[in-house]
Design a protein around this nucleic acid. Structure first.
Length: 597
DNA sequence: GATATTCCTG
DNA sequence: CAGGAATATC
């Protein structure tokens, strides 16, 4: 036993180290059978008679000092329990097993065919534009549109006729040649990029799969000007709108639009190749979305439980409009722990099961509490757009029970994590160097299951974390009042469970154990099993010894308090809480480690 | 008033 | 685990 663990809290339980009683006596403290029997009729207590019987001290003496930890000695129970053999108590525990029922009835995509189709579409567009500047615009658009919402052939013919009248294109020959050449280059790039074009392309929801498949074409050109600068949905809308315009300007406009999109798509694709090739192995959605949708803070492959901004259910007034870019880059940095803080992650990549269990137990109640979206981009327009991504994003996002309670469907699919994007459970995250180097971290706007897991692990050290500690440990979360409250609530819930278990086991011990010396909490004890099952379900966290000591102290506190019948008093637990809260340890640095850059 | 905590409930 | 009520503390 490392004495240092006691150096900090060097506390002595008021119930164990009694004022005026020698430690030996304290250690052999036994219950007064009469008292017990009077308080708990029917509970028979067998007492050891191997030492002087010590009658129960008066309560005034027992809890005479509010500050139980300050005045008293001692690790008395350590010294006085030399035969601490972890035999402890074998008390019944109520183990719970969650039923395995995870249905995932969402869409399935034929990725191969989808990619080919998309690529063919892009190439077709380019081909059309390259071959004939006069028609390619509409041709390409018509083609796209045809794919999208089933545009009829005659409609396209009419449109083409409008174009053939030579009304529209006001580009000079020089401009056209320049564009022509540019498009050839683009096409060459696309050929080299290959399937990567899907990255950019797939970013756009196809209309036929979108809930907004029936857009109204009442937009005006002015709307185009405004909307196009906002979102890609605006672009999309404009393109469709323009298609139905009969004015010749639309030709040029559509060409511009198409050029713009193609250019963006290709540049994004090329960028993503050079910047993070491994990402392609995991999810081609990443790059394009990050750039376009600032709200789509998805980090596929980085964090399985990374949330996709969900439907905002909180009032925007509560949103903290905070300049987000505190750590360079245009993107919100998500910082996970660099190095495993545990020497021995027993289940290095067991997050799946852990998360799965968590998700299993979730009741899909749409209480509407979720993350907030502090940026303007996340207002209605963007959120509406996110809905259109549902189908495809559901395949890559893992709904977090913590932050996405309003998720529409119970999909709990996990993304197939690529070989370079592995993640160990919780905060013990082995992060892709690629991601780290590219600063593609994101600041979470909500708490994820991993955060919950981390919080549970933290509980092994600190039961009463301050807000400051929480902010330090959950550095990758953008703190708001709600986030803070949620974290505090978590620990409150943790404590609740903790104390309930303590009381339960203490009462059980009261029946069969009369000597506090035999009240120990070892790693094999049922009490610890119950606690570990709750806070460390995956058993991938090395619970510090200190926690066992605190648990033991807590158990004894409850034991004595109940044995004294203090549980009849209104707030008898508060005295215990007061003792236990002083036993907090600092969270290890690993919990607080910030990204190095 | 805002925040934090406990207790109860689902 | 979250929501809500009650309570305590500041």
């Amino acid at each position: 036993m490392d004495p240092s663990v006691w150096s900090k809290g060097m506390y002595s339980s008021s119930s164990i180290c009694l004022d005026g009683y020698p430690a030996e006596h304290v250690s052999s403290f036994q219950l007064d059978p009469e008292l017990l029997n009077s308080e708990f009729p029917g509970v028979s207590v067998s007492l050891h008679k191997d030492s002087e019987d010590i009658t129960m001290p008066a309560e005034s003496a027992y809890y005479s000092h509010d500050d139980a930890g300050s005045s008293l000695i001692c690790s008395s129970h350590l010294e006085l329990s030399p035969s601490r053999d972890n035999t402890t108590l074998h008390l019944p525990t109520s183990m719970h097993s969650s039923p395995a029922s995870s249905s995932c009835g969402h869409h399935e995509w034929n990725l191969n065919s989808g990619h080919q189709a998309k690529r063919a579409r892009v190439e077709h567009i380019i081909k059309g534009m390259t071959s004939s500047p006069g028609m390619r615009c509409t041709d390409g658009m018509a083609n796209q549109h045809e794919e999208s919402d089933g545009m009829q052939e005659n409609e396209r013919t009419q449109d083409r006729e409008l174009v053939d009248r030579g009304s529209g294109c006001q580009m000079t020959r020089k401009q056209l040649e320049s564009q022509h050449q540019h498009l050839r280059q683009l096409r060459t790039s696309l050929n080299h990029v290959g399937g990567v074009t899907d990255i950019a392309d797939s970013k756009y929801p196809t209309w036929n799969s979108s809930p907004e498949a029936s857009p109204t074409f009442t937009d005006t050109y002015s709307e185009f000007q405004s909307s196009s600068s906002r979102t890609h949905q605006g672009w999309k809308k404009v393109k469709l709108m323009n298609y139905f315009q009969s004015k010749p300007e639309r030709i040029k406009m559509m060409a511009d639009v198409l050029k713009h999109e193609l250019s963006r798509a290709v540049s994004r694709s090329v960028d993503s190749i050079f910047r993070s090739v491994p990402l392609l192995q995991t999810s081609p959605n990443d790059e394009g979305n990050v750039e376009t949708d600032m709200c789509l803070q998805s980090s596929v492959g980085k964090d399985e439980t990374q949330e996709v901004p969900d439907v905002q259910t909180e009032a925007l007034s509560l949103v903290v409009q905070k300049p987000r870019l505190e750590r360079a880059d245009n993107f919100i940095l998500q910082s996970r722990s660099r190095a495993p803080h545990r020497p021995k992650p027993l289940v290095p990549f067991g997050h799946d099961s852990a998360l799965h269990e968590d998700q299993q137990s979730e009741k899909d109640h749409n209480t509407g509490h979720a993350l907030r979206c502090p940026r303007k981009e996340c207002s209605e327009v963007s959120r509406a757009k996110f809905e259109t991504f549902d189908t495809r994003w559901n395949s890559v996002k893992v709904r977090s029970k913590v932050n996405s309670r309003s998720v529409r469907s119970p999909q709990t699919h996990t993304v197939s994590v690529g070989p370079t994007l592995v993640e160990s459970p919780s905060h013990v995250k082995i992060e892709s160097d690629c991601l780290r180097n590219n600063n593609l971290y994101m600041l979470n706007e909500g708490l994820t299951t991993n955060h919950l897991k981390k919080a549970k692990h933290m509980f092994f050290y600190t039961r009463y974390p301050s807000s400051l500690v929480l902010k330090m440990c959950f550095y990758d979360v953008q703190f708001t009042r709600c986030i803070t409250s949620q974290l505090i609530k978590w620990f409150s819930n943790f404590r609740e469970f903790y104390y309930i278990q303590m009381e339960k086991f203490a009462r059980h011990a009261l029946i069969g154990v009369a000597d506090v010396r035999s009240l120990t909490v070892g790693r094999e004890s049922e009490l610890f099993r119950a606690l570990n099952m709750h806070y460390n379900k995956a058993n991938d966290f090395q619970v510090p010894d200190r926690f066992l000591e605190v648990a033991e102290i807590t158990l004894r506190e409850f034991y004595v308090a109940v044995s004294m019948g203090k549980d009849c008093e209104p707030s008898w637990k508060k005295a215990i809480y007061k003792v236990i809260c002083k036993l907090d340890s600092d969270a290890p640095a690993e919990f607080k480690s910030h990204p190095s850059g």
